[in-house]
């Protein structure tokens, strides 16, 4: 059970039960949909980006605990970051969940490090981030983890 606790940390349960920045965003100027066909997770990300800085970030959708917590934690981490800083965070986050070493300071996102021991769940953790990429590019096609 100990490795399950590594995956399902208290912070993750907390964000799963009470996702932060959850809901629509009337002032958003970027949107993207993300979909994980394997498990049916869907999320929509709304961003307000001004002068290359993410001022607001909110999400909607339904997913497993890992994808919901990851989206919730991501929105918290993004607010106030520049697009360039967001890209660096994504890269660091990706390295972390793949079990690779990263020098990026991930702050609270580090609670998702346990995902690297559960290869089947990496896509759940990265869904929000792939959706972010699409939103920043303002892609009109939903992104899929497949």
């Amino acid at each position: 059970m100990s490795d399950l606790r590594d995956l399902y940390q208290e912070v993750i349960f907390d964000h799963n039960r009470h996702p932060r920045n959850f809901g629509p965003l009337a002032t958003a100027n970027r949107h993207a949909d993300g979909f994980n066909p394997l498990c049916g997770d869907r999320l929509t990300l709304h961003l307000r980006v001004e002068d290359g800085v993410i001022r607001e970030a909110r999400f909607e959708g339904a997913g497993c605990a890992i994808s919901t917590a990851s989206a919730s934690l991501m929105t918290e981490a993004l607010i106030g970051k520049s697009e360039a800083e967001a890209a660096v965070l994504f890269e660091g986050f990706h390295h972390m969940v793949m079990g690779e070493i990263t020098s990026v300071d991930l702050g609270k996102l580090a609670v998702l490090a346990g995902v690297s021991e559960f290869p089947a769940r990496v896509k759940c953790a990265t869904l929000a981030w792939h959706t972010l990429n699409a939103a920043l590019k303002n892609a009109s096609q939903p992104v899929s983890t497949e």
Binding site: M1, D3, L4, L7, Y8, P37, L38, C39, G40, D41, A62, G63, C64, A65, I66, T68, F118, A120, R121, C124
Partner: peptide, 25 residues
């Protein structure tokens, strides 16, 4: 609890089930 989380926890208990849409969206 989302089915995907059920699947992961059961797997750690040695119990293999399927979670998802079962190719029947």
């Amino acid at each position: 609890v989302h089915p995907h989380d059920i699947g992961t926890i059961l797997d750690r208990e040695g119990v293999a089930i399927r979670t998802g849409h079962h190719c029947a969206m």
